[in-house]
Design a protein around this nucleic acid. Structure first.
Lengths: 341, 341
DNA sequence: GCGTGCGGGGAAAACGTTTACCTAATCAAC
DNA sequence: GTTGATTAGGTAAACGTTTTCCCCGCACGC
């Protein structure tokens, strides 16, 4: 049996702990902690140097569980994305992650698949991890969401407003304004009735896109053919395909179509191509999001470009504002841009 | 009236703790813990029921930091993806997340952008979080990676073999075999020389794709025009575009092109379209990955379909095998499929 | 001479779990 | 009736941090 010292310098797990660093630097663990966290006026320059040397020598990095337990807050920022298969969401997630990292935070990314039960499960899980802030990248109404807000969980809504609470912290674009611009552009480019293609409008983003487009189109004296597809799997690609199919049967056939998402536009385009129609020569198609791949694979698609690169910093800033000053009403509207092809 | 007991039932943070549950159920915290974790033969059916009732009443969920600290292992599975902007990676990440969730694990997803420093930073961060396993969804050689293995970090390599250690736990497809099939298909479909379009082959996946294609094409007596683009940003779309440009200038112009990724194929297609060429009528283009959107937006593209839906379960299984039996050599080869369009 | 403030640093108490021991009681087997 | 195993449950010690009190020494103003 090894008659060990009073305390082994590194834990049984084999990792260096703060105690090991303290021992090597010849100081107390309190001092090490203060040096690591940069507490001012609590250590001489010489002590700081000694501690940092020990940290380097031992390859020490503080364990997050210990800190989280003590602080009651982790450095994890949970991002609950509605659908990772959507390239726009994935692109936003990537920029968010980078921006958070620069601020010393770590992104925890999940895919809720737009399902309320999954969203609720994740909300609880993230609470258990004492997430710094939970970012809902496309929230869906759910019981767990209703429960989370009064409980004091810090939530940030992105793209879609909080269901039932338009005042909740939000980062996104002016969906309605953008849809108005789409209507104006389509009226300018084609004649005759315009088509609107969408699924169930239960999210604020979809709702406002529809609203803006309908209002402006009517105001400009154009008829609207509403080709909504409710029910089914809710898959945007399929909605687009089936919606376009319905439109092909309508007379007169609309020469301009507004789809409430790029994915829907992809689906619609597929059906139109199958029917031998050229986009945009025979029919102009507008999507929404203008995901980063469009320039390469959908040069036929007009869309509303959301500034995905700006989302990262904007969300990271909002996250920090939210954790510093709980009362501050965060609301960031990013600038979109019409892309016509 | 609150008669201050010896201990408040819920911590100052306002959340119910295991102590609160114990008090309400009239048992010790040890018993609550055992019930929560399903330890057999340590609680009567009646006690279990009482504890569960208390848990429901208080809306209790164990805090992960406490558990992690005690166990020395968190339920986080870190996934370090090389490039989230690639729809295939995003799709794989989504299936991984779902499969892990079914096994009670949580995915922590990061984007390394194929940069060694970032990968190293994340490896350390995940170690600090005591990640269950770290999954490298496209690893890149780096000093931190070399350091992590002897240290005992549990690593799982997906798609690309571990740089410098082909024996390390791996989940992926048979890249070389797939590339052989591509060569055979192209030889069958077009005549004349074939083109190979790729970037720097520092990853095993790219390397084996090149190897398989080159070997088989030569064996079949066809010439190869190698249009590699090294340097630059390394962006696949751009590589494809510039590579196609080089091919347009070559005589004779190849009637079949193999791009080592779908993204490259997108870029190439864009350049070919600009030149007025039709795919696949004028030139057959093969990509690799066949990401889920191809059916909709790239009906011109032939590709190797990786079974992204199978990755989730396969990776989750590997993660569990790795954490149960450290010695077991994990190696899963998933079945790919040639998709010709 | 005396308070007073400040720079520098240590001891120890949490934070919320899990689990190694212990103790009783019950029950089957001899 | 004594053993020995098994079930049921409690006590208390970790796990690795941060932070609140302390203490000490020294300079400063009076």
């Amino acid at each position: 049996m090894t008659r060990a010292h009073s305390r082994p310098p590194s834990s049984r797990s084999g990792r260096p702990t703060i105690a090991a660093v303290a021992q090597r630097a010849g100081v107390s663990i309190a001092t090490v902690s203060r040096v690591v966290n940069g507490v001012a006026n609590k250590a001489s320059a010489e002590t700081i140097a000694r501690v940092n040397a020990a940290i380097r020598d031992l390859d020490y990095r503080p364990e997050s569980a210990g800190r989280t337990l003590r602080i009651g807050q982790s450095r994890l920022v949970a991002v609950l994305a509605a659908n990772l298969a959507n390239p726009t969401m994935a692109a936003i997630a990537a920029t968010v992650e980078m921006a958070l990292r620069e601020r010393g935070l770590v992104m925890l990314l999940c895919d809720t698949h737009d399902r309320p039960e999954l969203q609720d499960e994740y909300l609880l899980e993230m609470r258990a991890h004492r997430a710094h802030v939970t970012v809902l990248l496309g929230a869906v109404a759910s019981p767990g969401l209703d429960a989370a807000r009064p409980r004091g969980d810090r939530l940030l809504f992105v793209n879609r407003l909080a269901p039932g609470d338009p005042q909740a912290p939000f980062v996104g674009i002016d969906n309605k304004g953008a849809a108005v611009e789409v209507a104006e552009a389509l009226v300018r480019r084609v004649s005759g009735p315009l088509a609107l293609l969408h699924g169930s409008p239960w999210s604020s983003a979809t709702g406002m896109r529809i609203e803006g487009f309908v209002e402006r189109t009517r105001a400009l004296g154009r008829a609207i053919i509403d080709a909504h597809i409710f029910g089914g799997t809710g898959d945007h690609l399929e909605i687009g395909y089936r919606g376009a199919e319905a439109l092909l049967a309508s007379a007169p056939r609309p020469a301009g179509i507004f789809c409430t998402s790029d994915l829907m536009a992809y689906g619609a385009h597929r059906r139109l191509s199958d029917a031998g129609l050229q986009v945009p020569q025979d029919v102009v198609v507008f999507g929404f999001d203008d995901n980063p791949l469009n320039d390469w694979i959908a040069p036929w698609l007009s869309s509303v470009r959301v500034p995905y690169a700006d989302f990262g910093p904007a969300i990271a800033d909002a996250v920090q504002a939210l954790s510093l000053d709980h009362a501050s009403p965060v609301r960031t509207i990013l600038r979109h841009q019409l892309v016509q092809r």
